[in-house]
Design a protein around this nucleic acid. Structure first.
Length: 186
DNA sequence: TATACGATCACCT
DNA sequence: GGTGATCGTATAC
């Protein structure tokens, strides 16, 4: 399997968010490895986007969004959950894709069923399950270690993509209306 | 130093 | 539909 290269992320954020659907998020942690197909993403793009954390400008927190694309932006929210984002666009342009949902397919080799599918719905639960926290902030996802993304399941190209408004950004004035949330219809 | 609030989730009505 | 848990970050003082 091929690790997504930096040039994949160095593009328009909405295109990256859409193209990440069906790709596999891989997490290595203490000898375990999880492989989750991304099913839901959101785009956050530029200082003009009032829902984007970088709308407040460059700060210690948002600095990573201005870094090279392909890095992880992981932050704590509500004091209890973490959210995983992938930095996009060119260096010094702040943007990222929030990974909101993914699915781990259980093996179907035995007649008894084997492990069931695990649906990771919501950015907080996804990070909780995959043991992703702020230690992975600024991690380079193009290295193919600890946390990375592999190219899309070819079959996923055939599935329809649903666009909708982003979640939890009611404060973002007109930006709340942007259809920058992308779902894979399984 | 103090305060307000959030890219969430579980649980309630 | 609404609320509370819980703490890092930004902003006001």
């Amino acid at each position: 399997m091929k690790v997504l290269p930096r040039k994949f992320y160095s593009r328009n954020t909405m295109k990256v968010a859409r193209d990440l659907l069906g790709c596999f998020l891989i997490r290595e942690y203490r000898g375990k490895i999880w492989r989750a197909m991304i099913t839901e993403t959101e785009a956050y793009r530029g200082e003009e986007d009032l829902a984007c954390h970088a709308s407040k400008g460059r700060t210690p927190r948002t600095e990573v969004m201005y870094d090279e694309p392909g890095h992880a932006y992981v932050y704590m929210i509500y004091g209890m959950y973490h959210c995983l984002n992938i930095v996009t666009e060119k260096k010094d342009f702040p943007a990222a894709v929030l990974i909101r949902g993914a699915k781990i397919f259980g093996r179907r080799t035995s007649k008894d069923g084997g492990p069931p599918d695990v649906h990771l719905g919501g950015p907080g639960k996804l990070c909780q399950f995959l043991k992703i926290d702020r230690k992975l902030n600024k991690w380079d996802l193009t290295k193919g270690e600890r946390l990375w993304i592999e190219h899309r399941n070819p079959r996923a190209k055939l599935l329809a993509i649903k666009k909708s408004k982003r979640i939890g950004v009611d404060y973002a004035q007109h930006c709340r209306e942007y259809l920058w949330r992308f779902n894979l219809k399984l």
